[in-house]
Amino acid sequence: MADSLTLVDWRRRVNEMYADVRAEPDRATGHARWRAARDELFRTHPQSPLLDDDPLRETGLPYWPYDPELRFDVALLPVEPTDDRLVDAGGDGTITMKLIGRVELSIGSLDVWWLHQYGGGIFIPLRDGTSGDGSYGGGRYLLDTAKGSWLGGDAESLTLDLNYAYHPSCRYNPRWQCPLAPPGNTITSRVEAGERL
């Protein structure tokens, strides 16, 4: 039961972290606060994906410098319906992803997915030219609203900030199996923003 309660606390803190970012008018300050809050969670929280002896507990997570040009408000573009994508998530079962749209960014276009787990949520993974050469080889996450990472948007658009790209838990701990970026979320451009190795 304690694991369940600490997981609820982790999710609550992540939601509060992103709410703090949305409330901060200065984007660079908001990003710095996000980094500090993530470092504190990863350092001290019982649900941290870091192993007990991981040096990142002391040093904090590394990031590329904040770049204000890498924030976008983009329209959610329609796509042709496809079959659901089923992803093996190990002990968490199978994750069902449904393609709901695409977004066009200066770095390329990315598929936008709906996760059926966790009560649903928008999911945008990213595998770019830094994957395996600067960032985790399996890619990073730009948006996973089921886990609280919402920066803003409305009924027709999303706010995406590449400075908030982060590694999935499986980068740190083999206990997790994470959904990684499919072909429609893979670009060749190097996105030197967000979390890095």
Rank of each mutant, 00 (worst) to 15 (best):
E58L: 14
E58R: 15
E58T: 15
T59R: 14
T59P: 04
G60K: 05
G60W: 12
G60I: 10
L61E: 08
L61W: 04
P62L: 11
P62R: 06
Y63P: 01
Y63G: 04
Y63M: 09
W64G: 01
W64H: 12
P65Q: 07
P65R: 03
D67T: 06
D67E: 07
D67R: 14
P68N: 08
P68W: 10
P68R: 10
E69Q: 13
E69T: 15
E69V: 05
E69P: 00
L70C: 02
L70S: 03
L70V: 00
R71T: 12
R71F: 04
R71E: 02
R71Q: 10
R71K: 13
R71S: 14
F72G: 00
F72N: 02
F72W: 11
F72A: 03
F72H: 11
F72K: 00
D73M: 07
V74W: 08
V74G: 08
L76H: 05
L77M: 14
L77K: 10
L77C: 11
P78A: 09
P78L: 14
P78N: 13
P78T: 11
V79C: 12
E80A: 15
E80K: 09
P81Y: 08
P81W: 10
P81G: 06
T82L: 13
T82V: 12
T82I: 05
T82Q: 15
D83W: 04
D83Q: 13
D83S: 14
D84M: 03
D84W: 05
R85C: 05
R85M: 15
R85Q: 11
L86V: 12
V87E: 03
V87M: 12
V87G: 07
V87T: 09
V87F: 09
D88G: 04
D88C: 07
A89H: 06
G90L: 08
G90Q: 07
G90P: 09
G90N: 08
G91M: 09
G91R: 15
G91L: 12
G91I: 00
G91K: 14
D92T: 05
D92E: 14
T94H: 06
T94V: 15
I95P: 01
T96V: 15
M97T: 03
K98Q: 14
L99H: 15
L99P: 00
I100V: 15
I100K: 13
R102T: 10
R102F: 03
V103H: 02
V103L: 07
V103W: 01
V103F: 01
E104F: 04
E104V: 12
L105S: 06
S106Y: 00
S106Q: 13
S106G: 12
S106M: 05
I107H: 02
G108R: 00
S109W: 11
S109L: 03
S109K: 02
S109Q: 14
L110K: 02
D111V: 01
V112N: 05
V112I: 13
V112H: 05
V112F: 08
V112M: 04
W113K: 01
W114K: 03
W114N: 05
L115R: 05
H116G: 08
H116N: 04
Q117K: 08
Q117P: 06
Y118W: 12
Y118T: 04
Y118A: 05
Y118G: 04
G119P: 04
G119F: 01
G120T: 10
G120H: 03
G120L: 07
G121Y: 00
G121D: 00
G121C: 09
I122S: 01
I122Y: 00
F123Y: 15
F123R: 02
F123Q: 03
F123W: 10
F123A: 02
I124N: 02
I124H: 04
I124G: 01
I124Y: 02
